[in-house]
Design a protein around this nucleic acid. Sequence first.
DNA 1: ATCTATTCCTGGCTGC
DNA 2: TGCAGCCAGGAATAGA
Length: 264
Amino acid sequence: MPELPEVECIARSLRPRLENRRILGVEFRSALAAGGRPADLARFLAGRRICRVFRRGKFLLLELEGGLCAIHLRMTGRLVWQGAEGPHTRAVLELENGRLVLDDIRQFARIHAGERAPEAVSRLGPEPLELAAAEFRQRLSGRRGRIKPLLLDQRFLAGLGNIYADEALHRAGIHPLAPANRLGGRRAERLHRAIVDVLEEAIAAGGSSISDYVDGAGRQGSFQQRHRVYGREGLPCPGCGAAVRRIVVAQRGTWFCPRCQRLR
DNA sequence: ATCTATTCCTGGCTGC
DNA sequence: TGCAGCCAGGAATAGA
């Protein structure tokens, strides 16, 4: 599941291959991969130069001459430079220097393109790695809901998904069901620190490869080996040794340590 | 504002 | 071995 660190790694690996290159054409192998009519998207993208490759939340963004291409990989999407085409190939971007292949088993990934950013991108909350602790704390104070669903809300904070939300809460010693506005200054700051740390460590490790993730060069990440709670039901918490528990929060599997993350 | 349920999808797993 | 049924979940959406 590409979350912020994985998309960041994809952006970094694709940047030298894509920037200042022209898109010759785009082929959609599945109409579902296009956020709009495939023919319209292909017509819009063909012939445009990619000026800049960057990330916003979990979106990979290609700034074009006179437009923007926004790609969201959702659960099982992969974007690989010169990738081999296979039964799950959903789109191929042909560039002057090679091809970018979108593979996606479950077909949730979408490619958008237009003169301006799609609504979902403009609605995104702040970037966690650029947000000051005081600002984060301020944003938390206005929210009455539980902390985990809030961390997953892309309008509140852009880029966290199920893995890094659980890992950050564990590092901060905060129960996933804790009310956001009752964390208090100290714990809010600890959570901010935990989010920044886990994201930076994950980026440095090349992301988490659980089932499908690889970067733009086809390389797997290794951060899954350093997960402390995510997907580890029954295994010992690295902090205290208590068995990690799994509950369901907002329809998502949620892992936490019942001893380190008390609900008060 | 906040919650829940539903939809989209398919490989992989469970249980009979 | 075969197969039905369920599960995983990011985000949009509807409805409470």
